[in-house]
Each structure stands twice: as structure tokens, then as C-alpha cells.
Simulated scan of single mutants.
Amino acid sequence: MDKLSVMNAFCRIVERGSFSRAAEDLGVSPALLSREVKLLEDSLGASLLTRTTRTMSLTDNGRLFYDEALGILGAVSQVEDRIRAGAGAVSGHLKVNASHSFGQMVIAPLLPDFLAQYPDVRLTLSLDDRVVDMIEGGFDVSIRIRSTMPDSALIARKIGTMRQRIFAAPEYLARNGTPKTPYDLEHHPVVGFLLADHLNSWRLNSPGGIVIVPLDPFVRVGNSLVVRDLLLAGLGVGTPDFISDAEEAKGTLVRVLPDHELPAPEIFAITGSRLGLDARVSAFLDHLSVALRR
């Protein structure tokens, strides 16, 4: 028995003074209402209504139940109204998880504008290069960069694509020569990204098709910012993904084999609910998506 539904029906019967009129309002049969009230009375062990062929009146217990039911239904309605209003408001505590490099280079710069636009949002940004348990960590959204997302109960929304190109410092290339073909890379030290799915080989897209180059990185690190810094120090070649843009613009890193790139992984926003995103998560992802398009 749905107690709230029965409460609502009982109150309607009392207010309309008739099973038939209440049934008409609720779109059900009078027989169904009569059966529900009987079940309610049986569960309470008390009569709520005194009925004759012509009249209906409340018992003392019926009056008590009616008064209390009105208060309960009113409180439930207020809670529902508050939740509906809050669901559309960009406010509350937003917990975001991302990798260190993506968090520092992409998310952190957009936070001042986001928080100025939504001053009622409290933000926690947790940076971790490991894949964390979102539910256990209590995160609203996690930003992950993957070629594909494995099947799971989590919901993945693609918000961007990341190019993967090969870079080196000009000083390194001046000392060691510039690779002319993909196979020349086998004679150059590679700075490998420990968490990449291409750690031991590069599957390069080129004008002539796909070229697979086996790798044995002499140093492997689990943070893209460290990959960038080691390349800046002239230790070899590598693919420091999105964090190389500023260095390329300054000329401190240059493209190697500019006609060749690794397959572009996707940037996913991971959430834990199949329901529509709440307002603060939607606002954050919209803000991030605009930044990624730029």
C-alpha cells in the first residue's frame, strides 16, 4: 500500500464529502477508493469514516488522521518544491576529479571565470593521475582522457578530443639530428608516459597510412608535465599532448615528423547517474567544453 497515495485519496474523500466525487477528481473508480480506505483502516485497526447509504462522517480517529495527513502531505510538497527549485540553480558543492596535468593546464585557468559566474558554487578539485573510484570518493564528475571508455555503470560524455603529436627540444635535435622517417625514432631516446596505452609502441597516422614504431622508453613517468619538462631539458622525444601548445608557440619545443600523429584520444566527463545532470555539473561541463573548443 502506497501510504502517501492513500493519504492523499483519504483527504480528497473528506474534502469532497463523497467517494464518487473524489474518485472522479483522482481518475480512479469509487470501488478502488473504498477498497484502499478499508485497507488503511485495517492496517490502523481503527475506523476512520462512518458511512451510511446517504451520509459519511469522520470518526475521532478519522479527524486525527485527516489533520495529520494534511500536514505530512504539505511537508512533502514543500520538500519537492525546494528540490525542483534547487535542481535548476547553479549552487552547492561541486566535486571534480582530473589528472594532474589536465587539472593544472586546462581546468585551473578556467576556474576564476567559472566561480565568478556562479558565486553560489563551492568547488573541490582533486588531482590524481590514477583512475579513482568516483562513488567512493564522492565526486560529481571525473575528467578522463582515453581512447575508449570501458563498459561500466558510470556515464561517459565526450566533451573534446586531444591531439597527440611528437615533440623534442631544438637543442636536442641540434645535437642528435632530426628524425626524417618514423623508423628513425628507434634510434632516439623516448620519454614515455607511464599511463598511456601506447607506451611500448606508437601507432602513427601518416599520409601513407598507419606506421607502427616499437618503443622502449629509457625513462617512463606518470605525469604529462614531467614528460614536458624532461623534453625541455633535451632528454629525447615524446608526446606531451595538450601541454605542449604553449611551448610550441614559444619555440622551446618543436614538432618532430609533423605529418605523423598518434590516434587522438577522447576527453570524457564521467558521472555516476543516468538521470539528467544537475545544474552545477552541467554548468561546469559547458564551461569546460567551451574552453576546449578554444
Rank of each mutant, 00 (worst) to 15 (best):
L33D: 00
L33F: 00
L33C: 03
S34M: 15
R35H: 12
V37R: 00
K38D: 15
L44R: 12
G45A: 06
G45Y: 13
L49M: 15
L49C: 00
T50N: 15
T53F: 14
T55L: 03
T55N: 13
M56T: 08
M56I: 10
L58D: 03
D60Y: 10
D60S: 09
N61G: 10
G62T: 02
G62W: 00
R63S: 11
F65R: 01
Y66T: 06
G71A: 05
I72E: 05
A75F: 11
A75N: 07
V76L: 12
S77K: 08
E80D: 08
R84T: 02
A85M: 13
G86Q: 15
G88F: 09
A89T: 14
A89G: 05
V90G: 03
S91L: 02
V96E: 03
N97Y: 13
H100R: 15
S101P: 07
S101Q: 06
F102Y: 04
Q104A: 06
V106Y: 07
V106M: 10
A108Q: 12
P109M: 05
P109V: 01
L110H: 02
L111N: 02
D113F: 01
D113P: 07
F114H: 01
L115F: 06
L115R: 05
D120F: 04
R122K: 04
R122W: 01
T124Y: 12
L125G: 01
S126W: 15
D128N: 12
D133Q: 09
D133N: 04
M134D: 07
M134C: 04
M134E: 09
F139N: 04
D140R: 09
D140W: 04
D140M: 05
S142I: 08
I143G: 05
I145C: 07
R146A: 07
R146M: 11
S147Y: 13
S147C: 09
T148P: 01
T148S: 15
T148N: 11
P150A: 11
P150W: 14
S152I: 06
S152A: 06
S152P: 15
A153M: 11
L154K: 00
L154H: 09
L154V: 12
I155E: 10
A156P: 08
R157Y: 06
R157D: 12
G160V: 07
G160S: 08
T161Q: 05
Q164A: 01
I166S: 04
